[in-house]
Simulated assay, not measured.
Amino acid sequence: MDELKGILKVINLSEKLKYELRHSFLSNGRQESVAEHTWRVSLMAMLIEKYLSKPVDTEKLLKMIIIHDLVEAEAGDIPAFDTMNNEEVKRLKHENELMAIERIRDMLGTALGPDVYDLWMEFEGKESYEAKVANGLDKLEAQVQHNEAELSTWIDIEYDMCYMLDKHVDFEPSLMELKELILQQAEEKLNNGGIDVEAIKRRC
């Protein structure tokens, strides 16, 4: 019963992800929640699984995706561009998220807590095949969402970030192919918005 109480606490905590907002907007102009992002990364994993070049532990992959942003219920969402060139922000983000996953582990108790903690740490480590796939899909989904939003919601660094996806997906041919399709969408959006795509490519 005590462990079920802990599970319910984490379920209650996860509700915050429904209103914790990301720096992404939907096609209807509403800002995206963390929960919505996580749901579509999970969908992408399910749809891309059969096209991956290596066998994948689907259960682990989906669990990893589902819990990877759970820490943001406590630590909040920090956009990638805020940590790109700021080591102090990156350090604080990691410290806050580590404290959050430790608290979540402790809430869940000894039967479940260590498993959730280990999955989160594996995602962060980006060394296993499942962790790399989860990380790659996480980054691709973010770009898909930008492509679907109004160009006016993009900030300047996000023009460049279209061309920074390779390092997250170049280990897997199917993800590289998907990235190319997503990049084509981004370039079409930029071109239609009067943005000089060739200039972006040159500086990236």
Rank of each mutant, 00 (worst) to 15 (best):
M1F: 14
E3G: 07
E3W: 12
L4S: 12
G6E: 01
L8R: 10
K9M: 04
N12K: 12
S14G: 09
E15P: 11
E20G: 10
E20T: 13
H23A: 09
S24A: 12
S24Q: 12
F25P: 00
F25S: 00
S27M: 03
N28P: 00
Q31R: 04
S33H: 01
A35W: 08
T38M: 14
R40G: 02
R40F: 09
M44K: 05
A45G: 05
M46F: 13
L47T: 09
L47I: 11
I48F: 07
E49N: 07
E49T: 07
K50L: 04
K50V: 04
K54Y: 10
P55W: 08
E59T: 08
K60T: 09
K60R: 11
V71H: 09
E72P: 10
E74D: 07
A75Q: 04
D77Y: 15
P79D: 05
D82G: 08
T83D: 07
N85W: 13
E87C: 11
E88L: 14
K90N: 15
L92W: 15
H94M: 14
E95G: 11
N96R: 15
L98N: 13
L98C: 13
E102M: 09
E102G: 04
E102I: 10
R103D: 02
D106W: 00
D106I: 01
T110I: 02
P114Y: 01
E122M: 05
K126V: 08
E127L: 09
Y129S: 07
E130C: 09
A131Y: 06
K132R: 10
V133Q: 04
N135A: 09
N135L: 08
G136M: 01
G136W: 01
G136L: 00
L137Y: 04
L137E: 03
L140V: 02
L140T: 00
E141Y: 03
E141D: 05
V144K: 02
H146F: 06
A149R: 00
A149E: 00
I155L: 12
D156R: 12
D156L: 09
E158H: 11
M161Y: 14
M161G: 07
C162I: 15
C162P: 11
D166F: 04
D166N: 12
K167S: 08
H168P: 02
V169N: 01
F171I: 03
L175T: 02
M176D: 04
E180C: 12
L181F: 13
I182W: 03
L183S: 12
Q184I: 15
Q184V: 15
A186T: 11
E188Q: 14
K189A: 08
L190N: 06
N191H: 14
G193A: 06
D196Q: 06
A199Y: 05
A199L: 05
I200C: 13
K201D: 10
